[in-house]
Design a protein around this nucleic acid. Sequence first.
DNA 1: CCGTATCCGAACAGATACTG
DNA 2: CAGTATCTGTTCGGATACGG
Lengths: 120, 120
Amino acid sequence: MKDQCLKHNICPMAIAHELISGKWKILILWYLSYQTLRFSDIKRRTPQITQKMLTTQLRSLEEDGLICRTVYPVIPPKVEYSLTEIGHKIIPVLEALHSFGGNYLNEKFKNIPMDEEKDD
Amino acid sequence: MKDQCLKHNICPMAIAHELISGKWKILILWYLSYQTLRFSDIKRRTPQITQKMLTTQLRSLEEDGLICRTVYPVIPPKVEYSLTEIGHKIIPVLEALHSFGGNYLNEKFKNIPMDEEKDD
DNA sequence: CCGTATCCGAACAGATACTG
DNA sequence: CAGTATCTGTTCGGATACGG
């Protein structure tokens, strides 16, 4: 059903936008571009996210075929997330975004002295 | 005030995501990467958007310093939008997104015959 | 032509409690 | 550890009417 929608959405930009437009998706994909991570790993790297939101975003990314979910039947439970083959193809987007974000921060704040150096 | 927020947001990815996460921002930036456009031009290229949404998105992009709004004091009114210098720096992101979107569509639908060839 | 104002429903997202 | 369920507040976005 979702595929039907996508099939009829002719614009690559619209598709791409849909795929990354979740509140935390870009960040999650960015983490996973470096390494496979467990649920709790991702949670730890994303202080603001709630458990519910993380689950939602991961499920959506999985449904879109960007990430892969591996469940190990052990106690306590262990679930790992990694990029799929298609998921890897989004890395250039993430790199461009990261670079742009850095650029933007520099431009915006090059005249503003930082009054706090100690933000971890 | 918004700058204060951005200033304390240490992650380039989070910033970048914020900047492009409006429902139509990526599409608008994509159009403007090719040429300066009038309000009605953008509206025409984006069938689904409402006037209100277009205004909202343009205002937000302007506030973030990505686009420039030029008002010509003529009757009838004429307003043009173009990328700013910082705005131009987002073009690699748009290109990566477009490329990824195309890739994604190919992967997803390579086995599905298209039943309609005549979509403009 | 290029907006603004208002109303309203839908989707999103936080908090909390519970489970295998 | 890795979730689910429920309840609730907030934000988003569509429709419509009006204005310079």
